[in-house]
Design a protein around this nucleic acid. Structure first.
Lengths: 338, 338
DNA sequence: CTGAAAGCGCTAACAC
DNA sequence: GTGTTAGCGCTTTCAG
C-alpha cells in the first residue's frame, strides 16, 4: 500500500503539501500541484479514507435508511442518491429495515452512531421522536425523502395535488362515476400517503360538484394483487359500476386493468384507469399516470446534503424546489362510452 | 462525543481494557467486562469506526457492486447480503454501476481502493481482467454472485440444470412444440445466462428425442415487453404455433401470458407457460416457474466473506453448497389440449 | 506557498 | 488479566 510520504518523496515535497494538493484544501502552486498529481498517479496512490477521516472528521460517506429495497420506489430513490453521491466522491452506506424490529433498533442505536457517515437520508420512514433526536444528537445533516419528518428538512411531494391532477384528468374527460382505490390508513411506514391522495381525490370531485360516496373509495395495500381484487369486485357490481378508476399506485392500477380485462371489459372503452408513479411497467401497460420521478428525489436529497457538508459549493444550496410531478396520458383513459 | 478513555475512567480501567472488553479480542475478567459494558452503556459510548479501523486494519464494512439496483434480482441479492451483514455488525457500501462507463471506472479505480471495505461482493458482473487483478491486488476477499468470475470464488447456480428442469416439466406434461424465449447472447453484464439456459433447453429436448428447430429459440431482452412481443409473434403464426413456452425469466413469461390472452388464447388450456426466477409477480400471475432465491444468494455471499474475515467463526466456512433451485408448479402449465 | 509537528481515537504488542 | 507504549496514515495548525 503506497502511502502519502512515498508520494511526497517522489514529488519532492512534504506530506502536508501532498495532502493539500490532492484534497484541494489550502493553497498550492499550480506547478507543485501538477508534480504531486502525477507522482500520485504514477504510484497509484489512493488516500486511506480512515486515516483521512480520523484526522479531518469528514467521512465522505452518507447513510441511507430505507424500509425496503425490493420495491420500485425505494430502489429508484437509492439509485438516484447513489449516482449523485458517487459523482461527488461520496460512498453510500445502505441500511435496509425490511428485516424487522431488531434490525431497526440496531441501525439506529449502533450503526448510525459509529461516526461512519457524514449525513443520513431517511426514505419514507416515520421516525420516532427518539430516533430523530438520536440522529440529531449526532449533529449530522439529515434529510427525509417521501414524507414529512418532524423537525427534519424533508423533500415532500404534494400528494394532494397529484391525486387531484389524476382525478381532474378523469373528470375533464367526462367521467362522473369514479372509483378511488387508495392506501389503507394504517400502513405506518408511509406518511399517510394514502390519506393525502384520498383527500386530493375528494377535493377534485367536490370542486367539480360530483358526489363522493363512501363506497367509491376503497382501501388496498398498493400491490397489483390487491388492486386486481378490489377492481374486480367493483367492476362486477350489478348496479353501480364505475366508468373510471383512479388508483393510488401504478401497480394497483395495472391490477385493476387486468381485472377489467378478465371481466371482458376493455380499457379504456368500458373503463378508464389512471395510476400514480410512472412505474417501470406503466409504459408497457399503456397506463395513464402521474409520474413522480423518485430517482430525481434521491439525487436531490444527496445534493442538498453535499451542499450542506461542503459550504464552498453553496451554489447548489437552494435546490429546495417543490418536487415535480407530471401527468402522463397514455392509452388507459378516454371519454366514457356514449 | 464520548471517547474510550472517558469510559475507561468511569470503569476504573485502562483504555486498552475497554477496547478488549468491548471488542471481545483478548481476555478480560467477567467482572471487569461487566463494569466496562455498563460504563459504556451509560455513557452511550460507540466506538469510532475510523479510529478503530485505522488501528486495527479491519473496517467491518463490505462493498457490493451491482450493475443495477432497480431490478428484482439485484435488489433481492442486495437485501439478502445486507441482512446477513447487519446481523454480524458489518456495514454494506453500495456501488451501483447502472450509470455508465465513467462510474464504473471510478468505482474500481478510486472507491474500492480507499481501503474502506474489508471485502467485496460482485453481483452478475463480468469483470475485466484488469478489474479483477485490481481487486485482488487489494488483497481483500472477493466473491462473485450470479456467474463465474475468472480466478474468483463464485456462487454459481446451475443455469443449465434449471433450464432443463423447466423444459422437462413441459415435456413431462406431453408438450412437444415448445418455444424458448431466451436472453440475447450479447448482453455483456450477464454471464451468458441466456446461452446456458438455452443449452439446458436443448439438452432436455434432445434427451426426449424432440427436434429443436432454430425458430423455436428466440432471443429477447428479459423484459416483459419483449416477452410479450415475441410471444405474440410466435403464437400468432398460422402454421406452427407452440403449445408451450419456456421463457428464461418470469418477466418474459408474464409478457408471454399477456400476449396469449390478447390473442384470445387461454393459459394453460391453449398454451402452457413456464418461467424462471419466482419473481414477486409470479404468484399473482399464477406462473409456474423455477425459483432461484436471490436473497439467499446474497446472504450466502456475505456469510462466506465473514467466515473468511473472522477465522474464529470458521464453522460457517463450508457453506459452499451448490445453490438451490426449485420447480414451483402453479396454474400456467398443463397437458396440451387433446 | 510550503514544512514541521502535533494529534485524530483507537488497537496491539509487550511488559508486568 | 491489565496497564503502558507505540503507532495506524493522514490533516491541520503554526511558523517561516
Amino acid at each position: 500500500m503506497v502511502g502519502i510520504d512515498e508520494v511526497a518523496r517522489r514529488a519532492g515535497v512534504s506530506a502536508a503539501t501532498v495532502s493539500r494538493a490532492l484534497s484541494g484544501n489550502g493553497a498550492v502552486s499550480a506547478e507543485t500541484r501538477a508534480r504531486v498529481e502525477s507522482a500520485a498517479h504514477e504510484l497509484h496512490y489512493v488516500v486511506s479514507s480512515n486515516a483521512s477521516s480520523l484526522a479531518s472528521g469528514r467521512m465522505r460517506n452518507v447513510g441511507i435508511v430505507v424500509p425496503h429495497l425490493n420495491r420500485w420506489f425505494f430502489s429508484s430513490v437509492v439509485e438516484g442518491a447513489e449516482r449523485a453521491l458517487l459523482r461527488n466522491g461520496y460512498d453510500l452506506t445502505l441500511y435496509n429495515l425490511s428485516g424487522g424490529g431488531d434490525e431497526r433498533r440496531s441501525v439506529f442505536d449502533h450503526f448510525l452512531r459509529r461516526r461512519r457517515v457524514d449525513a443520513v437520508i431517511a426514505v419514507a420512514l416515520e421516525l420516532t421522536t427518539d430516533e430523530i433526536s438520536g440522529l440529531l444528537a449526532l449533529d449530522k445533516p439529515l434529510v427525509g425523502v417521501g414524507g414529512p419528518l418532524a423537525g427534519v428538512p424533508s423533500l415532500e411531494i404534494d400528494e394532494i395535488a397529484i391525486a387531484r391532477l389524476a382525478t381532474e384528468h378523469l373528470i375533464m374527460l367526462g367521467h362522473t362515476a369514479i372509483l378511488h382505490i387508495g392506501g389503507s390508513s394504517e400502513e405506518d411506514t408511509d406518511f399517510h400517503i394514502g390519506s393525502h391522495r384520498r383527500i386530493g381525490f375528494q377535493q377534485a370531485m367536490t370542486a367539480a360538484g360530483l358526489p363522493v360516496a363512501a363506497e367509491s373509495m376503497i382501501c388496498a395495500d398498493f400491490t397489483m394483487a390487491d388492486g386486481y381484487a378490489h377492481a374486480k369486485q367493483a367492476l362486477g357490481h350489478p348496479h353501480h359500476r364505475p366508468t373510471a378508476i383512479f388508483a393510488a399506485s401504478d401497480e394497483m392500477a395495472i391490477g385493476a386493468a387486468l381485472a377489467a380485462r378478465d371481466l371482458g371489459l376493455s380499457v379504456p372503452q368500458d373503463v378508464s384507469i389512471v395510476g400514480i408513479d410512472d412505474h417501470e411497467l406503466a409504459d408497457f401497460f399503456q397506463l395513464t399516470t402521474v409520474a413522480q420521478f423518485p430517482e430525481r428525489q434521491g439525487e436531490l436529497a444527496a445534493e442538498i446534503l453535499i451542499a450542506q457538508l461542503e459550504p464552498s459549493r453553496r451554489e447548489e444550496a437552494s435546490l429546495r424546489v417543490p418536487l415535480p410531478f407530471e401527468l402522463l396520458v397514455r392509452s388507459s383513459t378516454a371519454r366514457p362510452q356514449g
